[in-house]
Design a protein around this nucleic acid. Structure first.
Length: 888
DNA sequence: TTAGTCACG
DNA sequence: ACGTACGTGACTAAA
């Protein structure tokens, strides 16, 4: 008979975390169930992996606890529980009952106190205990028999802490965790601590003095501000310590027997999960359909059959298995894939998994494997194959044949979910647990490649995970009508992006340095004058110091505040300019300093020594609307609006002598898309006649002929058009045009009076989002808007504007992506040497040999305009020159 | 690490 | 009454 093992779960804490970590799942009745779902997956995993004999979920009961008796503000300032979450408490409690999981609450006590008391008793009886919570305070309960499972990253990962782990991480004993809190406080519980003392300082003090009491007694040994603070706030520290101390003497009414857990209650668990529509959990527990249930949780996944193929017969076996390989994972290290190390490659067949270390992969022995990697006809599934392609490329190993990229599919299935890693996906689909990379490699500076066996096992587990996730995603993509978008647009685009990035764009390094010297001189002059006027030298880049000069010293009026002090942004400075000459100079300084640091120095750092080019990295899985983003360097925000900055574009030049840079951009693509999807007669008409859309808008809104539209009217109309695309609000427009909200509202009314089709679209799309929970683009790209029904006005309004904007911005993104695919094919089919280099949302940039200039001048706009047939024409304008500046 | 600022579409 | 325009990434200061 195994030893008893008790798991104690901090119910309130875990459901809270689950709520914020999980996407806003709702059942068909419209009831939000995400927190219950997250909680349940976590619970089932704990049961599977740790097989407790005893189990209890503790909840807070009632609003006032004994802690409030001593300190009124305890947990004051904490946000009210959102109704979307509080509604889920009864669901969870009901489900736990049906699963046969004991739960416990005692009026006037918090879950921590219940857990503290039970764990003390269990500890005293020598029983093994595991406490599950996201709250670091729990660490104070750790002991030889009691481990704390801290939830990390949503609810998918746990980190186990015993006294040993606490010592190695903080150099503290479990008891000292309370002292730590006493000194540093806890904003979320409104525990004050000592102001100015954070984690680092607190740890230092405790290392020296041992406890809060020790620190207070020892202030004599300290000096300066620190001493003063600790002396004045000694009482706060003592009180904070008391508040942070978990009470371990709650009068319990539950006995050890009451906490016994002997498996899920099979008769009621199935129906309860089915009622919540947790299909994947039902499957995981084999409770779906009429499959026999035995009350046991599904067995953990069988161990993977892993072969470390570092050469010899193991490598031969891996090569022999290639025709059967259904998934791979290329493990890399580094944020920038152009400069990443390759650690190794794992290959998965349904039966076996092979890990080939990089040393082996690049050796003469692995030629057959490299040929397979390069073979377009050998289909590959994996996670972030775009990154793999680039990392391998710079190691001289070509990669081709990507069919299903799990990261990309996950993005389409929920584009708002940030950076979904394989561990998350595996958990989401109820597949066998996959350790997080951080657990295996450590994070940040602590990154370390583990020994071969551990490394191989982990990377192989990743490719095995891909194997499991792919069919689930294919099903999900089919269910959401995004299969075509995935296989015909995003996957092919991924390869094209990689090609563009490898190609890179040449930078005239000398030209850039010369520009830097010019900026340097301007900056030096400005700085000198500013110091002179200010009467003192200070750090111009510090908003804090600048604020002190402007508002305290020079006494300029405070226009706007930030949460940390005075606001000094450009909008504020523009308003202050009439008061003092220094302001204009500061604005000028800001402009040039930005150019210098970001675009001269920043860009110089990104030039690859081997090519003299910059190789950006387009991220295809970031923007919620379907746009790309660009990194290392960002080439989508190179200055253009102001002449000083625009000059930066002169340094982007063709990579071959005699070639040209050719740029083509869509004209008003978003408003054209709006004309199409809103089917607004007047807007469509304007584009069918290829009119100046802002002038036309001014004519219609002000009811005047073209001759009567002055520049001011056109400017207002332009702002309204922008507002329409963004999901207009009177406030936003009023800010933009510097008019009152009333006037802005009148503008908007006048606009909608004329463009009634647009009004109908805006109304309908919000209704649709409310009903379906998501909006889509023309190519069925989807974005969920859970907050569209939120009770909070701000959240709801934001979701409404997003509902209006996303189909427009997203469809424009779809269109240019299509154009890129068609353009890539056109270049290939015609055997042209011209190369597509950059995409800037509505613009494509090429480098073109002399003898292809004529054809490209017509081909590029033709292809862009034909990318997708709308009810209004698309228009692309082309230009070219000796560099990106001239291509205007 | 977070906040403020500013570059782009 | 609420208090915002939509979508990104890079740099700097200051903790």
């Amino acid at each position: 008979m195994d030893k008893d093992k008790l798991i104690l779960i901090d119910g309130n804490n875990v459901i809270y975390r689950a709520f914020f970590a999980m996407p806003p799942l709702t059942n068909t009745a419209g009831q939000q169930t995400n927190a219950v779902y997250g909680f349940t997956t976590m619970l089932l995993r704990l049961i599977e992996e740790h097989k407790p004999t005893h189990l209890i979920v503790a909840f807070d009961a009632g609003k006032v606890t004994f802690r409030h008796e001593g300190y009124q503000d305890y947990k004051g300032g904490r946000q009210k529980t959102p109704p979307e979450l509080s509604e889920q408490f009864p669901l969870l409690k009901d489900l736990l009952k049906n699963l046969g999981v004991p739960q416990y609450e005692i009026v006037n006590y918090e879950a921590d106190d219940i857990i503290g008391t039970i764990s003390r008793e269990a500890d005293e009886a020598g029983r093994e205990v595991m406490i599950v919570s996201g709250d670091k305070d729990m660490l104070q309960l750790a002991s030889d028999h009691t481990k704390i499972a801290l939830i990390r990253k949503g609810v998918t990962e746990i980190e186990l802490y015993g006294p040993e782990e606490i010592r190695s991480k903080y150099d503290l004993t479990p008891e000292q965790i309370i002292d730590l809190k006493g000194l540093m406080g806890d904003a979320s519980d409104n525990i004050p601590g000592v102001p100015g003392v954070g984690e680092k300082t607190a740890l230092k003090l405790l290392a020296q003095f041992g406890s809060v009491e020790g620190v207070i007694a020892g202030t004599g040994e300290l000096k300066g501000k620190m001493k003063e603070k600790l002396e004045t706030h000694a009482d706060d520290a003592v009180m904070s310590k008391k508040l942070a101390t978990i009470f371990r003497e709650v009068p319990l009414t539950h006995s050890w027997e009451d906490m016994k857990f002997s498996g899920l209650k099979s008769d009621t668990a199935g129906p309860a999960l089915a009622k919540l529509e947790f299909k994947s959990l039902l499957e995981r527990l084999n409770l779906s359909g009429h499959a026999p249930v035995d009350g046991e949780v599904a067995a953990p996944a069988p161990e993977l059959d892993i072969v470390i193929a570092a050469g010899g017969s193991e490598l031969d076996a891996a090569v022999a298995a290639l025709p059967e390989v259904k998934a791979l994972h290329v493990e890399t290290y580094g944020d920038n894939p152009h400069r990443s190390e390759v650690i190794g490659v794992a290959l998965s067949t349904p039966e076996k998994h092979y890990f080939v270390p990089f040393e082996t992969l690049k050796s003469g022995e692995a030629e057959a494997l490299r040929a397979w990697l390069a073979d377009e006809k050998s289909p590959k599934n994996g996670y972030d194959l775009h990154r793999a392609d680039l990392a391998l490329h710079w190691q001289g190993i070509p990669f081709a044949g990507a069919v299903h990229d799990v990261q990309l599919a996950a993005y389409l299935l929920d584009p708002t979910e940030a950076n979904q890693n394989l561990s998350d996906l595996v958990a989401k689909y109820g597949l066998p647990h996959l350790a997080a990379d951080e657990e295996v490699f450590g994070k940040g500076a602590k990154y370390k490649v583990p020994e071969l066996a551990v490394l191989g096992a982990h990377v192989a587990a990743k490719s095995a995970a891909v194997l499991g996730v792919v069919p689930k995603q294919e099903q999900d993509l089919a269910d959401t009508a995004m299969l075509k978008l995935f296989h015909d647009l995003e996957m092919p685009l991924s390869r094209i992006l990689a090609d563009m990035e490898k190609q890179g764009i040449l930078v005239n390094q000398d030209g850039l340095k010369e520009l830097g010297r010019e900026f340097e001189r301007t900056i030096a002059g400005l700085v000198e004058q500013i110091y002179e006027i200010a009467g003192t030298e200070f750090n111009l880049n510090s908003t804090k110091q600048l604020g002190e000069i402007l508002f305290d010293k020079l006494g300029l009026p405070v226009v706007k505040k930030t949460k940390t002090g005075y606001s000094t942004d450009a909008e504020v400075l523009e308003k202050l300019a009439p008061y003092h000459d220094i302001v204009q100079m500061i604005l000028q300084y800001r402009t040039i300093a930005k150019l210098q640091s970001t675009y001269v120095e920043g860009l110089l750092k990104e030039i690859a020594p081997s090519t003299g080019k910059v190789h950006t990295f387009y991220r295809q899985t970031i923007a919620a609307t379907g746009r790309l983003s660009s990194q290392f360097p960002n080439l989508q925000n190179i200055p253009i609006r102001l002449e000083e900055g625009r000059k930066i574009r002169k340094v982007f030049v063709p990579s071959e002598p005699g070639w040209s840079i050719l740029a083509a951009d869509y004209s008003q693509i978003e408003l054209r898309v709006l004309a199409h999807i809103s089917d607004d007669a007047r807007l469509k008409d304007a584009f069918l006649h290829d009119m100046d859309i802002h002038t036309k808008t001014a004519m219609d809104v002000f009811g005047v002929p073209a001759e009567a539209v002055d520049s001011n009217m056109r400017r207002s109309a332009k702002a309204v058009n922008f507002g329409i695309v963004y999901g207009i609000s009177d406030y936003g427009l009023s800010q933009n045009l510097n008019i009152t909200r009333k006037e802005a509202a009148k503008f908007i009314d006048a606009y909608f009076e004329v463009f009634q089709g647009v009004r109908r679209y805006m109304d309908d799309i919000v209704k649709e989002a409310r009903k379906a929970g998501y909006v889509t683009t023309l190519l069925e790209r989807r974005r969920y808007l859970p907050e569209i029904n939120a009770s909070n006005f701000n959240q709801r309004s934001f979701a409404e504007r997003t509902a209006m904007n996303t189909p427009i911005q997203g469809t424009a993104a779809d269109i240019i992506k299509l154009a890129m695919i068609h353009m890539d094919r056109a270049l290939f089919e015609r055997g042209l040497k011209s190369r597509m280099l950059l995409q800037v949302h509505d613009e494509l940039v090429f480098e073109v040999p002399e003898d292809e200039l004529e054809i490209m001048k017509t081909l590029v706009p033709e292809v862009m305009e034909a990318a997708l047939k709308l009810s209004v024409p698309l228009k692309a304008e082309v230009s070219y020159g000796s560099d990106w500046y001239e291509a205007k």
